[in-house]
């Protein structure tokens, strides 16, 4: 990695260090070896669950990142829950009437256009600087008090929720409109079924299938959002760690964050898949019944 303009050794000993000092540090960090060898060693460790040590403070990466998991997950899970509740509710409302639908569409475009880190700063100005309702930055662990913990994550969660809610409201509205325009809705109405049952028992049930996918995407989107938002609110999570590691060129630490992100994504996708299987009977029985009744279909 010596060919790269500046490396972790420089960030460690400073720009004014002598050539000997740098060489010493590089040897310690294993930076003198060829890139592929470094990567091979790292991969070997990663398979065993050892993500190596940080180049800056020499601590094991896993130990550092495990401590950062809770703050990040608080933000992401909180944002996803709020966005799902709000977004689905707004989306159902929007599927009902034409004008609300248009308001939601333009609102969601606006919600997506505002950069999250800037929105975070605006919220700090409004609710921390002017109103003083929440602390502007910092994170309180929940075992130090649930109240302060909630106050410390409220603004970052709100920040992450805005684009997530915008996406979910729009997608729910579309999914609901699609579901409610299906032929079976007419059949159910003709059979005398009430609007309430049509909306929730049938409409929402069918709309839930595409919406669950979007909830998964929103969760992963919030995961990416933590990178900027945690930095804005000085939350010691995975995202702010990644930014810090990038700034100091601490490659093992960044790679560690990537591994953690990947694992989280895999788990989320698994959960979405399970939810899908639960919601869509066509997936449950694709192999089970083998279409015992489904022979000789309709004319072309």
């Amino acid at each position: 990695m010596a060919f790269l303009p500046g490396d972790a050794a420089v960030s460690l000993v400073g720009r004014n260090a002598t050539e000997e000092q740098l060489k010493q540090v590089r040897e310690d960090l294993g930076l003198e070896q060829p890139v592929w060898a470094q990567y091979g060693q790292w991969l070997e460790g990663a398979v065993r669950g050892d993500l190596g040590n940080s180049m800056i403070n020499r601590q094991p990466v896993t130990a550092q990142l495990n401590g950062r998991l809770a703050p990040s997950m608080s933000l992401i899970v909180g944002a996803t829950l709020i966005a799902t509740t709000l977004g689905v509710a707004i989306g159902i409302l929007g599927a009902q009437r034409g004008r609300i639908g248009r308001v939601i569409d333009s609102g969601s475009i606006g919600g997506l256009a505002v950069p999250d880190f800037w929105l975070g700063l605006v919220l700090i100005v409004l609710f921390a600087v002017h109103l003083g309702w929440f602390p502007p930055t910092g994170y309180v662990r929940w075992n130090e008090g649930v109240g302060p913990w909630m106050r410390s994550v409220a603004l970052p969660i709100a920040t992450l929720s805005v684009p997530a809610t915008a996406i979910l409201a729009r997608q729910t509205r579309e999914a609901m409109s699609t579901a409610l325009s299906k032929e079976y809705v007419r059949t159910l109405r003709a059979a005398g079924i009430g609007e309430c049952s049509i909306l929730f028992r049938h409409g929402l049930r069918n709309a839930a299938i595409p919406v669950v996918t979007v909830v998964g995407l929103v969760f992963i989107g919030s995961l990416g959002g933590t990178v900027a938002v945690e930095s804005v609110f000085a939350i010691p999570g995975l995202g702010s760690t990644a930014v810090h590691a990038t700034a100091t060129r601490d490659l093992p630490l960044i790679q560690g964050v990537v591994v953690y992100f990947t694992l989280i994504v895999i788990v989320v996708n698994l959960l979405v898949d399970l939810a899908y299987r639960y919601l869509d009977p066509r997936l449950q029985s694709a192999t089970a019944t083998d279409g015992a009744f489904a022979n000789s279909g309709a004319a072309p």
Partner: peptide, 8 residues
């Protein structure tokens, strides 16, 4: 033939 007959 009917559907599934293989006409198409």
């Amino acid at each position: 033939g009917e559907s599934g007959a293989g006409k198409s």
